[in-house]
Simulated assay, not measured.
Amino acid sequence: MEEVRPPGRRRLVVGISGATGIAYGVQVLRFARAADVETHLVVTSAAQQTREYETDLSARDLRAMADVTYKPSDVGAAIASGSFRADGMIVAPCSVRTLSAIAHGLGDNALTRAADVTLKERRRLVLLVRETPLTLAHLRAMAAVSEMGGVVMPPVPAFYLRPRSVEDIVRHTAARALDLLDIDVPGTPRWGDDADAAVPTPLTALSNSTRRAHR
């Protein structure tokens, strides 16, 4: 039986896997809540370890950022069914292990199963793959996901915006990921929106500072 949803409110599945960069997933959740998007979260056990290393958040704090949360072992979760309606899914960060499982349709936990469902239902899947350098195995997995309609979005900083902090970089990347699902984050700097932002001075400033350092 197909689920009946109240009209108007959008729904997003968010996966957080065990790569470094859990701040991206946290910021996606914060932006989604500010945009009144209903979020369904699954965090892998490896991601919980990363949470302890990289943040001061407790597991309860992280769960509180989402409307609904699921255990990674719950392969019968609502998000693991195609009849569960969602506007798309973001995995932020996405580990190579999770990327590979998605690329080969393993569906061995709630996160990878939800991603598989997202692809088979022809919904937008965005993977913030966090790994470098890349082996041929990594690249082939990325190609496989892309061929299935997923979007591989490594969290690459936009330095033309002159970020002043790590938080600036994280916020812009999270906003761009949400852009791919047509979820607008007000205040996101966009190239061309402001005439002053289009002045190509950052590289000039960097070049001058490099020259001074080598005198």
Rank of each mutant, 00 (worst) to 15 (best):
R5L: 13
A115F: 00
H104R: 14
G149A: 14
A23C: 14
W191D: 01
G76Q: 07
D108M: 03
L161E: 02
R60Q: 13
A86H: 15
G21N: 11
G150M: 01
R33L: 09
V185P: 02
P93V: 07
A205V: 04
L12H: 01
F159V: 12
I169R: 06
L106D: 05
A64S: 11
S95F: 06
R190D: 02
R63H: 12
L128V: 03
A80V: 10
G105E: 10
H172I: 11
A143S: 14
G105H: 10
R171P: 02
V37R: 03
V96H: 03
Y53F: 15
A66S: 12
R176T: 09
A213K: 13
S81M: 00
G18H: 03
D168Q: 05
D179L: 06
D116T: 08
L57Q: 03
G21A: 09
L180F: 05
H40G: 01
A23G: 11
R60W: 08
V129W: 03
E38P: 04
S83A: 13
M148K: 15
A141I: 01
G107N: 08
P157F: 09
A78F: 13
A143Q: 15
G88M: 02
M1C: 09
E2Y: 02
V26S: 03
T188C: 06
E3W: 05
R176I: 06
L111R: 06
V152H: 08
V152A: 05
R63I: 06
G149L: 14
S83P: 00
E54C: 14
L29D: 05
M148W: 09
R9F: 03
E131A: 14
A114G: 07
G15S: 07
R140A: 10
G187W: 04
F159D: 12
T50F: 03
T135H: 14
G18D: 07
P72C: 02
A23T: 05
M142F: 13
Y70E: 09
L181R: 08
A158Q: 08
E167L: 13
V170D: 09
A197C: 01
T204D: 10
R211N: 10
L134W: 15
Q48R: 15
V129F: 02
V14H: 00
I79S: 02
D168K: 01
D193Q: 13
E121L: 06
R9S: 12
Y53Q: 12
M89D: 05
R215N: 03
L128E: 00
E131L: 09
M153V: 07
V43S: 01
A205C: 02
G18N: 07
L111Q: 10
V151M: 08
A175Q: 04
D184H: 10
L136E: 15
T55E: 05
R97I: 11
T135W: 06
L99S: 09
A115E: 00
D179R: 15
T201G: 03
S209D: 13
G82Q: 14
L203G: 08
A77Q: 07
A144H: 06
N109S: 10
D116M: 05
A213Y: 05
A177E: 08
